[in-house]
C-alpha cells in the first residue's frame, strides 16, 4: 500500500505543454485562412437585407463590390444624407461605374472576363431609384452578372 503511494508521489506532476503550440497554431491557421483582409474602408452604412435563395461567391478575384447606402455620420457634413455609391474606397457617381468595371476586366485573364460578378451591397432602406441607375450603368458596361448581397434568413416572412 505504502509502496504505491510513494510511487505516485515521486512521479512528476508536470503536464507537458509541448503540444500547446500545435493547438494554437491550428487555431492560427484556421483564422489565417478564414480572414479576408478588407481592402477598402466602408464609408456608407450598409445593412444588407435577408433572403433565402442565396448563392455563394466563390472566386474572390472575379468579384468587385458596389456599395450603396447613406454616408456614415462622419461623412455626412460633406456628402449629405442622400444615398451614395462607393466604389473601392471612395465615393463615386453612377457614370464612373463603366470605367470601374473596365478596370477590373483589365486585371483578369481574358477567358475569365465573362465570369466576373458584381456584388451589390445595398442597404435595405435605400429606395430603388439609385439602384436602378446603377443597374442601368452595369448593363451599359455589359456587366450582366450581378449578385445582390444578402444575409441568410432563418425565420419566416411576415
Amino acid at each position: 500500500m505504502s509502496k504505491f503511494k510513494k510511487k505516485r508521489g515521486a512521479a512528476s506532476p508536470a503536464i507537458s505543454t509541448a503540444s500547446l503550440p500545435d493547438i494554437i497554431f491550428m487555431l492560427l491557421f484556421f483564422f489565417m485562412v478564414v480572414t479576408v483582409l478588407r481592402d477598402s474602408e466602408l464609408k456608407l452604412q450598409v445593412i444588407t437585407p435577408q433572403a433565402t435563395e442565396l448563392t455563394k461567391l466563390e472566386k474572390k478575384s472575379l468579384v468587385h463590390y458596389v456599395y450603396i447606402g447613406r454616408p456614415l455620420k462622419k461623412y455626412q457634413e460633406i456628402y449629405g444624407t442622400a444615398p451614395q455609391i462607393q466604389l473601392g474606397d471612395k465615393f463615386a457617381q453612377t457614370w464612373e461605374i463603366p470605367a470601374f468595371v473596365e478596370e477590373h476586366r483589365a486585371r483578369v485573364r481574358e477567358s475569365e472576363i465573362p465570369a466576373i460578378i458584381t456584388s451589390m451591397r445595398v442597404d435595405g432602406d435605400i429606395t430603388m431609384g439609385i439602384v436602378t441607375d446603377v443597374k442601368t450603368q452595369l448593363r451599359k458596361a455589359r456587366q450582366y452578372k450581378v449578385n445582390y448581397s444578402a444575409k441568410q434568413r432563418s425565420g419566416k416572412l411576415q
Binding site: 483564422f31 478564414v34 480572414t35 479576408v36 478588407r38 444588407t48 433572403a51 435563395e53 442565396l54 448563392t55 455563394k56 461567391l57 474572390k60 468579384v63 460578378i117 456584388s119 451589390m120 443597374k135 452595369l138 448593363r139 455589359r142 456587366q143 450582366y144 452578372k145 450581378v146 449578385n147 445582390y148 448581397s149 444578402a150 444575409k151 441568410q152
Partner: peptide, 15 residues
Amino acid sequence: TTIVEDKGVLVKLPP
C-alpha cells in the same frame, strides 16, 4: 478578421 458573408441572390441583367 471580418468574416464577411459573401452570399447573395444571383441575377442576370438583360442587355
